[in-house]
């Protein structure tokens, strides 16, 4: 138990500290790099609770794909952060309000589970014994067997969103040369080459 506690405080401390650095770093690229550190440590926290599958998926999806795109965009944009930060204090009241609401909700949820532990058990799915059914298999049961239709509908919603984004931004530019592999492969000497006998001094 002692070892777990040490790792918990290590991951938690680094996660919170780098979360603070995300909003206080001067350079936006540094912010994204600290954000990656936050994700990484959250994956560590997931591992400590025994949610190994979620930890790995967090690494693959959030760090391997989402944060790469963040970094991509932030690197391409030349943001002048001095100008960006000049009016930051005028948003402070809204920020404090949102922070208070989140804190209150967290206190209600965590406090509720401390006062009446039975109440939380009533609403959550029973967690299978990890020795019998592994984490990954248990998640698969829920997603792909019990609630497969809801899962598929969620996928369809995402697909529609993706198609919408592509339709909104796709422009076929006419002035760009494109390679048509099929027509390239279908070319034969008959259609591509014309043999001309040129008489001297005349040209074609």
């Amino acid at each position: 138990m002692g070892l777990q506690a040490i790792f918990f405080y290590l991951f938690a401390f680094v996660a919170v500290a780098s979360a603070f650095m995300v909003i206080s770093a001067k350079n936006p690229v540094h912010s994204v790099l600290f954000l990656i550190l936050v994700f990484f440590n959250s994956a560590g926290l997931f591992l400590l609770t025994g949610a190994e599958f979620l930890a790995m998926i967090l690494l693959v999806v959030y760090i391997g794909a989402v944060a790469v795109l963040f970094l991509f965009v932030v690197m391409m944009l030349e943001i002048d952060f001095a100008e960006f930060r000049s009016g930051v204090l005028q948003y402070a009241p809204i920020g404090i309000l949102v922070g208070l609401i989140v804190a209150a909700e967290l206190i209600v949820v965590i406090g509720g589970s401390v006062i009446t532990p039975e109440a939380t058990k009533a609403i959550t799915m029973p967690i299978p014994n990890p020795a019998v059914r592994s984490n990954t298999a248990a998640l698969g049961d829920v997603l792909y067997t019990n609630y497969v239709y809801f899962f598929e509908i969620a996928g369809l919603v995402l697909l529609v969103a993706m198609i919408g984004a592509i339709v909104l931004t796709l422009r076929h530019r006419q002035d760009v040369k494109r390679q048509n592999i099929a027509s390239q492969v279908a070319r034969t000497p008959k259609t591509a080459v014309e043999v001309v006998k040129v008489k001297p001094g005349q040209g074609i």
């Binding site: 790995m56 690494l59 693959v60 760090i63 790469v68 970094l71 991509f72 690197m75 984490n135």
Partner: peptide
């Protein structure tokens, strides 16, 4: 247990060294 996922996750992070 999740060996292959671990490999996949870590190798998807390798892009960061390059970026």
């Amino acid at each position: 247990n999740v060996g292959i996922l671990y490999v996949f996750a870590i190798s998807s992070l390798e892009v960061y060294g390059i970026i």
